[in-house]
Design a binder for these strands. Structure first.
Lengths: 217, 217
DNA sequence: CTGCATTTTGACCAACTAGTCAAGTTTTTG
DNA sequence: CAAAAACTTGACTAGTTGGTCAAAATGCAG
């Protein structure tokens, strides 16, 4: 009776096997690629199955509905996407904290552009699958950090600025480079791929925003 | 022989009748609504026909392919969307010109959010229908204005800033309020609808960006 | 008012796609 | 090494959707 996991008849706990772990990952990785490029409706299960290297019925064995894959992917992504915001330290130096936050967001935008586009596409279409997440998780977190920024402003450590709009501006600007990548490429051409491009971007964005909110005599 | 238009047999010129004008407009207006909400693949011809108040075959009489409606809509939108950028006056006061530009973009984002979302969705998915427009029309215009901004910087009228990233930042920030409307609403709640909201937004955005690029001693 | 051109539509079709199923194969376990 | 559990798949189905077509209705010039 010591080890409950040794029971033979299948029970509710539903342990995941090695194969399950591998295949779920394979599917989710493939799906992120496809969903972020074609959107939910624009993606077919066959496309994902092909990319994941398995048959459609097999894929459906792991995720019985197309929607399941999509939602799982969004959930996985959202946590990771929000993490940097939570890391803003209320006791740290305001300019330094925001510099770190912006830098981190730009880095994520470059390293995980698919995640950014998946999220952007979902929100653009009215966030049908994550509206609850937005109000239950995102809003409280933003409210919390907005209060911190407002306090900093009150202490004269930042120029008077609406904290919400500041956060939106940081999001918009950093994610722009992932979401509107083709547009950026159409305008800046081969510069985009070049080694120092991310640093140059970060430099420009930081320069404008940080100078824009630095306290003024 | 004086009036060529009086020929009876149908010829190439293809004049548009009164009914054609009305119905094409009806279809495009309905389509903008639907496409901007559900994307290209997510939209059905039936949806558009319903919203336009006509039968599907009738709609297809005016636009033989779904793609035709979509492309027409994008073309119509793009010109309008870019116009404010062209209006930046190289001889005007830099800060004043950029203030005007940002203000105009925020106003458009509020008055035509569907157009913004239509465009955002297209670019997000790799701009398959407008990549030519981006390189042939958008790029030259941006290059032109970037040169103006660079000159202003050289003349010490603006803080040293990369003109392309500045333009991207303005686009990203202003369009964010249209494209990510549900997210903004989830966080700021009923404030969004309120009368002074656009002014408050404009004030915050202008304050950060303009102070961020104002020349510093 | 007449005859031609334009507009409108019901019925239909072919392609596509999410999801099912039953029958097989492989892996795990006692 | 057997038997059960887990995994895999070809063949299929039902629903959706972009687009066709022929015939009917309407608009309009002379």
């Amino acid at each position: 009776m010591a080890r409950a996991t040794k029971k033979k008849t299948s029970e509710t706990p539903e342990k995941t096997t090695r194969i399950q772990e591998i295949n779920r990952r394979l599917i989710l990785d493939a799906a992120l690629d496809v969903f972020s490029t074609y959107g939910f409706r624009g993606t077919t299960i066959d496309q994902i199955a092909d990319k994941a290297g398995m048959s459609k019925p097999n894929l459906l064995y792991y995720f019985p509905r197309k929607q399941n894959i999509y939602v799982t992917l969004l959930e996985e992504t959202l946590e990771e996407w929000l993490a940097p915001l939570a890391e803003i330290d209320p006791e740290g130096d305001p300019i330094e904290q925001l510099r770190k936050y912006i830098t981190l967001k730009i880095r994520m935008s470059e390293s995980h552009p698919e995640a950014s586009r998946l999220f952007a596409n979902e929100v653009l279409h009215g966030a049908p699958a994550i509206s609850e997440f937005l109000s239950k998780h995102l809003k409280p977190l933003v409210d919390d950090k907005a209060a911190v920024i407002r306090r900093w402003v009150g202490e004269g450590k930042l120029a008077p600025v609406d904290p919400y709009h500041l956060i939106f501006m940081i999001w918009a600007t950093t994610q722009h480079y992932a979401d509107f990548d083709v547009q950026v490429r159409a305008i800046m051409g081969n510069q985009v791929g070049r080694p120092g491009f991310r640093e140059q971007t970060a430099q420009a964005v930081l320069s404008i925003i940080l100078n824009g909110i630095r306290p003024r005599g």
